[in-house]
């Protein structure tokens, strides 16, 4: 076994961490510079649970496992509608502050994607350590929360803004939400991009809004 591992490290084609991507469903893939979530990066989603769920959907369907840490407040029915394969999720709903860093580090070591939802700001030392660990292990860390929760700069920051349709003044019901999903960040992602989408559409899934130019690049 030891020789096999040695041999493997010799002949394995060299892939840099940023070249390995986790798939992301349409139309979000157009936002990312490489067309998917680069392994080893940190993505901060600005307070949108449905966007965080939409980001992991394609990865879970293609066989990757995802851990969701520190929250029980997720609508799993909505997650399933967005295409998340619930069989490949591990959820750690309750997490004390004392063990937070230890547990997240253990998950980053073994999972393809870790979604954290810090209730209180993460100490800067812990944040740096975990981001470095994710970079080293090729895991994607998704932080779902406002900027103050994550004291260091994330590789990619995503956000949504939009309005619901279907609700009137005392009549109707929520049907779908048309949003502009934005992405900005460092290095390859330093251009601000947006894409129009239904998040969620009438059937609860993520849909592209058919327009001439799906992705706007602003210099």
């Amino acid at each position: 076994m030891a020789t096999l591992a040695e041999l493997r490290s010799l002949v394995q084609p060299t892939t840099l961490a940023h070249e390995r991507l986790l798939p992301v469903g349409s139309p979000l893939d157009g936002l990312f510079p490489g067309g998917g979530l680069a392994r080893g990066t940190t993505v901060r989603v600005d307070e949108s649970t449905s966007l965080a769920l939409a980001l992991i959907a394609e990865a879970t369907r293609s066989g990757s496992w995802v851990a969701v840490v520190g929250t029980a407040a997720i609508g799993w029915a909505a997650a399933a509608d967005l295409g998340v394969e619930l069989r490949r999720l591990l959820v750690i709903p309750r997490l004390a502050r004392a063990t937070w860093a230890e547990v997240v580090a253990a998950l980053v070591d073994n999972m393809a994607v870790v979604v954290v939802r810090p209730a209180v700001p993460v100490p800067e030392r812990d944040a740096r350590r975990i981001a470095a660990r994710a970079r080293e292990r090729g895991a994607v860390l998704i932080v779902d929360g406002p900027a103050r929760c994550w004291p260091i700069e994330a590789d990619v920051v995503m956000g949504v803004s939009g309005h619901w349709s279907g609700l009137g003044a005392g009549h109707g019901r929520l049907q779908s939400r048309r949003v502009a999903v934005s992405l900005s960040g460092r290095r390859a992602a330093n251009r601000h991009r947006t894409v129009e989408a239904w998040l969620p559409g009438a059937d609860g899934s993520l849909r592209a809004v058919p327009t001439g130019r799906p992705v706007t690049v602003v210099r």
């Binding site: 997720i74 909505a78 969620p200």
Partner: peptide
Amino acid sequence: RPHPASVWP
């Protein structure tokens, strides 16, 4: 549908 993305325990 659509289901809420956050359900408070």
